[in-house]
Amino acid sequence: MVLLSIKNVSKIYGQKKVLDNISFDILEGEIFGLLGSNGAGKSTLMSIILGLNEPDSGEISVFGSAKIHDSIKKISLVPQDPAFYADFSVEKNMHFFGSINGLGGAVLEDRINFLLKWLELEEFRETTADFLSGGYQRLLNIALSLIHDPLLIFMDEPTAGLDPKMRQMFWSKIRELKKSGKTVIITTHYMDEAEALCTRIALLKKGALLSIGTPEELIRQYGGIKVVIFKMEKNVSQADIESIKKALKQESVIERGNLLIIPLQQAHSVEKIAAITQWLIDKGYNILSAMTKEPDLEDVFLNITGEKMVV
């Protein structure tokens, strides 16, 4: 079921077109990633979807309605920056925002207890928000956004600036949300996060939608080639490099010091790696180590945009 439908949405600020005819749908239950560098239009698109901004053209429907306010109770935003009263305690913040989101009484209490437990904030119930560490402040941010049990959750850079352990925790919580039937839309700079979490990804650059699809689809389509890197005890001779090129029928075999870098098409890449390894051994070269780099979303982005992702 399509929860969110965006059709030909454009937005211009002054002379600059920040969104250019964007169209895509978001299905129920998926984790959808909006990927793009700074200035790609992710935040603008999100603000338009949330009704904080008006598009100059196009239509948006959320839960089948063009008026976002009709579905406001089902939608939530986890902003990138903390959005709570720093001088209130965790519980007081949750009480207040639960109240303005229409909850009260026992329902609210249950919800608070659930979230505190689920997000491991129980011990910080009475702690003033300002005194929480960065990670727990993010968790509180999430808790406040989920207080009214929304169905569609927007997360803006949810793990930016977190340590790896916290990141993993956030990822697990996001997956749990998906499992519980929530639909999550994430904006992120992190390719690994998008690859790890998103069921589908939309790539944006300068307001334009470059591509949309599952990570695998995008990598397959735009990811390019695998790269195998051999670390040699001694440099490979130029003649041998030429031989490898000739055998692989490709020009791109690179030597960097004692590293031999060979890009390979995905098809039959494993057999080719085995064959090259054997050939080098037969040639008397000592291979200290070998590693392969699979194409990823970063490669996809680079290949599509011609630029590296700017964070």
Partner: peptide, 21 residues
């Protein structure tokens, strides 16, 4: 303070009307 603490953003996204707030 509410603006800098981003609380106003949550207010806007809540079902509670501006008049009520």
């Amino acid at each position: 303070l509410e603006r800098t603490q981003n609380v106003s953003l949550r207010m806007r996204l809540s079902p509670t009307s501006k008049a009520y707030l």
